[in-house]
Simulated scan of single mutants.
Amino acid sequence: MTDSNPRPGISLRALAPNAVTAMALCTGLSGVWFAMQSNWDAALLSVVVAGVLDAMDGRIARMLKGESRFGAELDSLSDVIAFGATPSLIIYSWALQHMPRFGWTICLFFVLCAALRLARFNARIDADDQPHKSAGFNTGVPSPAGAGLALLPLTIWLETGAEWARDYRLIGPWMLLCAALMISNVATFSWSSIRIRRSFRFLALAGVGLFAAALISAPWVALIAASLVYAGLIPLSVVSYAKVKRTRRATAQSA
């Protein structure tokens, strides 16, 4: 008589995405270690690599059909550390420690907003009524994107050496804005909400290739451009979602 029960243990299919998430956490947190040594290039790259790994883990989980509630919780904890605490501590070590009184408060606020955003995401993960998600949009700026925007002044400084980019009077309000965007209800583009016309597909592929080449030859310029493009897309995403809302409202009224 054969045993119909599955073999005990966890399959590699379920473990693989969680391993990538753990790598993202460790890589992102290593940015703090580099910041303690004033190795700003490596600190910034640690967060960038963590962002790449964070983008991979979910896709690997869906590809291998290894999604789990444990993986979702681990991913959120990793995001708070890699894209909340790490960029905040990097910016504090780099510039905000020189800000009288409120430098550390701003950093704490940024981490808190990252945690609140991810707590909101987890609380709504099984909710049926999610207007932004059902339309393919994110609610607020995702934490990896928020970390990238928060680190934009450091990226500009690494490329240009401009001391104005290190001025805490500029960085303090910028960090507050990035934190507020993460917990806001602003609709922002997700991968599924971006549609490219067939006539522009070759141009889009050429742009991706150009960006990849720039990452190799001029990484800071490429990251600055990506951050500015993303920031510029936020108003467009608000307008695009408003059109979706109007279309849905008209459809509901006609029905």
Rank of each mutant, 00 (worst) to 15 (best):
A212I: 05
A204P: 00
L223T: 01
V239T: 09
V239A: 11
A213E: 03
S192C: 00
I183E: 09
W191M: 15
F202T: 11
V238W: 07
T251W: 06
R246T: 13
F200L: 06
I194V: 11
R249L: 15
M175G: 08
F202W: 01
L228T: 00
T251P: 00
L181S: 05
L176I: 14
T251Y: 08
R248E: 15
W174N: 10
T251I: 11
P235A: 11
T247I: 12
F202Y: 02
L177S: 01
S217N: 07
I171N: 09
V229P: 02
A206R: 01
G232E: 10
L223Y: 05
V229Q: 00
A180N: 10
G232W: 08
T188Q: 06
S192V: 11
A212W: 02
N185A: 11
L205S: 09
A204S: 06
W191T: 12
V208A: 13
Y241W: 14
G232F: 10
F211P: 05
F189K: 14
N185Q: 12
A180E: 07
T247H: 15
L215C: 13
L233K: 04
I216K: 11
A242K: 13
L181K: 06
S227Q: 07
L177E: 01
C178E: 04
Y230F: 12
W174P: 11
L181A: 07
A204C: 07
A250H: 11
T251G: 04
S192K: 15
T247K: 15
F211A: 12
S240C: 13
L205F: 06
S184I: 09
R198D: 03
I234K: 03
V229H: 03
S227H: 04
P219S: 09
A225I: 12
L203Q: 04
F189N: 13
F200I: 00
A214C: 13
W191S: 12
G207A: 04
N185V: 06
S240W: 02
L215T: 02
R246V: 14
M175Q: 07
S190F: 05
R197V: 00
V239N: 07
G207K: 09
A206V: 06
A180G: 10
